[in-house]
Amino acid sequence: MRLLSHNLLQCNVKNCKSNNFPLKIQVDKSNIINCEFRKEPLVKLIPKLDWNALAITVHNLANNKEFPEKFNPALLDDLKFMQDLHRILMETHIIEGALICEGCNKRYPIKNGIPNMILNDEEV
């Protein structure tokens, strides 16, 4: 799982409406898989992201306070920042661990890089 799609994902439990995004990530094992850096597709993806959630996640995971809390169009011209963003969104894979909903405490385990989002019958 990459942070790109983590940014799209909410908790799916019935009636879990508040504080269900972003899911907290517990990392047991992560991996960097290099892929080609292309700026334009990345720029196009930015409007789809919830920047606030991404900032929270990055701050939690990396203890990296440098990551800007607010998006600012000037960042698009900063090549160094775009490369960092590429690394964060496209190249960082969470292999083992779990996603935890802070609203309802539902725990979704991640194994082999694939989160298990299947609910129990009573949670649907």
């Binding site: 799209l8 994902l9 909410q10 799916n12 995004f21 890089g113 989160p115 989002m117 299947i118 609910l119």
Partner: peptide, 13 residues
């Protein structure tokens, strides 16, 4: 990849 049962619905934003 996500392990999701499509009949349970999926909660992407």
């Amino acid at each position: 990849l996500y392990e999701i049962d499509m009949g349970q619905g999926f909660n992407f934003r």
